[in-house]
């Protein structure tokens, strides 16, 4: 990771300029060319370091979401994880070290759509889905302070 990449990632996790050419505005602050900013973001997106340049929405602010958990027999974990990935509503899906070993997030325009997806997952797997919708969000997301070492 170059110093330039580190500055780009540390300083622009929020307040992306709302001007017609935001990458040119970033380039000015970092003393480089607009094309360098764009090419670097393309490369970091391609290698997976950057998920996207865009908005982090407040959960429950637009549409509905929930965190779901399942206790999956280990030998079925990959098969069921793949089945769950196949749902458009699912944006995160992780194995965790716990009896409840599969955790995923569902987002949809309305709660009915989430209920439908959960019911379908339960029907297709024969397993129970624990539905844990957010009640309150306490975290002000200012981006992640990366400690380089």
């Amino acid at each position: 990771m170059t110093d330039f990449e580190r500055r780009l990632l540390n300083e622009f996790q929020r307040d992306l300029p709302l001007t017609p050419r935001p990458f040119a505005a970033i380039a000015e602050k970092l003393d480089c060319e607009e094309s360098t900013v764009i090419e670097t973001l393309e490369r970091l997106t391609a290698d997976g370091t950057v998920s996207r340049v865009g908005a982090v929405f407040k959960p429950g602010g637009v549409g509905e979401s929930t965190l779901a958990a399942m206790a999956v027999p280990p030998e079925r974990l990959e098969e069921i994880a793949e089945l769950i990935n196949g749902f458009d509503e699912v944006n995160h899906n992780y194995e965790r070290e716990h009896r409840l070993n599969l955790w995923f997030v569902l987002c949809a325009p309305d709660r009915a759509r989430i209920d439908k997806a959960i019911a379908e997952i339960e029907a297709r797997t024969g397993l129970t889905v624990l539905d844990l919708p957010m009640i309150e969000d306490y975290h002000l997301d200012l981006g992640f302070p990366i400690q380089w070492d």
């Binding site: 637009v62 979401s65 995160h92 899906n93 992780y94 995923f104």
Partner: peptide, 17 residues
């Protein structure tokens, strides 16, 4: 404390509006 093991999917939310 539930450590993550495998990551099967990670992307931004699409609310499918």
């Amino acid at each position: 404390v539930l450590f993550s093991a495998r990551r099967f999917k990670q992307r931004g939310a699409t609310y499918c509006l």
